[in-house]
């Protein structure tokens, strides 16, 4: 069975909760962003409850839970953005 390698970047409060800015997943049976998020929640239970207010991007474009993932993709998960002025 083919093992996919997915790089997951984490930012801001999510990065702090997980304790790492990057997690690499090596899995089969990963087809969508939702599969990655489920895997991450299984490995890092502390992120549960965070999921309703997160944004996802795939290869630097906004994605959603149903977006399909290919081997080698760069997925990022982060809170709603707050840059710019105050």
């Amino acid at each position: 069975m083919r093992i996919m390698k997915i790089k997951v970047l984490l930012f801001a409060r999510l990065r702090e909760i997980v304790g790492s800015e990057m997690v690499e997943l090596h899995r089969n049976e990963i087809f969508t962003v939702r599969d990655v998020w489920d895997t991450l929640q299984a490995e890092f239970p502390q992120v549960e409850g965070f999921g309703k207010s997160l944004l996802f991007s795939l290869n630097q474009e906004f994605a959603d839970l149903n977006t399909r993932i290919e081997d080698g993709d760069e997925l990022a998960i982060f809170p709603p953005v707050s840059g710019g002025d105050n």
Binding site: F11, A12, R13, L55, S57, F62, A76, F78, P79, V81, S82, G83, G84, D85
Partner: peptide
């Protein structure tokens, strides 16, 4: 520009 930046540019502040 500033309104859109605050919605779609992935930058966070603490």
């Amino acid at each position: 520009a500033i309104d859109t930046l605050k919605k779609i540019v992935p930058i966070w502040k603490k």
